[in-house]
């Protein structure tokens, strides 16, 4: 069906969109299914998994720490500023900021940064392998590409995302504490007292569950777009962009679903 025909008729455009979406969802589900089978059917390739974990965790640590520090500073300063305007009092800022950091900021910002750094890298790498027939070569040598490429990345990304999210939360809280102490007049003791009133242990568990889920989404999306990469540099570029866009959207939607689900437990 030509683009001209599709755009001329809204019904055929809708039909075309639905067919393409259905095909994409079906092949993404097939990849997820194949990954689960390979994940539990064989032991993971240790060397490759550790290499990927190093790439995910160590390679992203400083970028994430740097970015979440500033996100945390902005969060606490903005909260204080607006609370002072609305209720003429910012005494709840330490507790409020701590909850926001643990429930949302730490894990979501970490996942989004991982998507742009690690997810894009994975999509580009697998896309290049597809274009240069390395994936076909793997099949010819009797190697399952999902087991060889997706499983190590999935394990590494999941573990890496949880670890980085915990570190990001700690860095965020530390940054918020310092800013509260230096600029808002709340000592570290006061901050911790307020934090204990607002934050529960389950917040940390829920943040880790979120990070775990985001860690699964990133490599699956990236590998899917890599495997379906069209030929040429343009194809690899497009696969990389699509993987970042779709993984970011998936993370935001998943965050909403998880937050909504967790709200029943508070």
């Amino acid at each position: 069906m030509s683009i001209k025909t599709v755009s001329a008729n809204p019904f055929s455009a809708l039909g075309h969109f639905l067919i393409v979406s259905f095909k994409d969802i079906r092949s993404f589900s097939q990849l997820v299914g194949a990954t689960l089978v390979q994940l539990f059917a064989h032991l993971p390739r240790k060397k490759e998994t550790f290499q990927q974990l190093y790439f995910v965790a160590n390679g992203s640590l400083w970028t994430i720490a740097f970015c979440v520090t500033f996100a945390s500073i902005v969060t606490i300063l903005e909260s204080s500023f607006h609370m002072k305007i609305v209720i003429q009092n910012d005494s709840m800022v330490p507790g409020f900021a701590s909850v926001l950091i643990l429930r949302e900021l730490g894990s979501v910002v970490t996942a989004l940064l991982l998507t742009s750094r690690v997810g894009a890298g994975m999509a580009a790498e697998i896309g290049s392998m597809k274009v240069t027939e390395q994936i076909d070569a793997l099949k010819m040598l009797g190697i399952n590409p999902v087991r060889f490429l997706v499983v190590p990345r999935l394990i590494a990304s999941t573990i890496g995302c949880v670890i980085l999210s915990i570190i990001a939360n700690m860095v965020c809280i530390l940054a918020a504490m310092i800013v509260a102490d230096q600029f808002l007049g709340y000592s570290i003791g006061l901050f911790l007292t307020a934090m204990r009133r607002f934050v529960d242990f389950q917040d940390i568990i829920f943040a880790s569950i979120k990070a775990f889920c985001f860690g699964i989404v990133i490599p699956l999306m990236s590998c899917y777009f890599g495997f379906n990469c069209k030929s040429g540099a343009d194809g690899v570029g497009r696969a990389t962009t699509q993987s970042v866009v779709f993984a970011s959207v998936a993370i935001i939607v998943l965050d909403f679903i998880l937050s909504y689900t967790f709200s029943y437990f508070y």
Binding site: Q51, T132, E133, Q134, D136, A137, L138, K139, M140
Partner: peptide
């Protein structure tokens, strides 16, 4: 296809070597 691919070798258009 695994046993078929074992008896059929293929040399691709690209070298398709594993960079790592």
């Amino acid at each position: 296809f695994l046993p078929v691919r074992k008896k059929c070798g293929m040399v691709f258009q690209h070298p398709a070597l594993f960079d790592s």
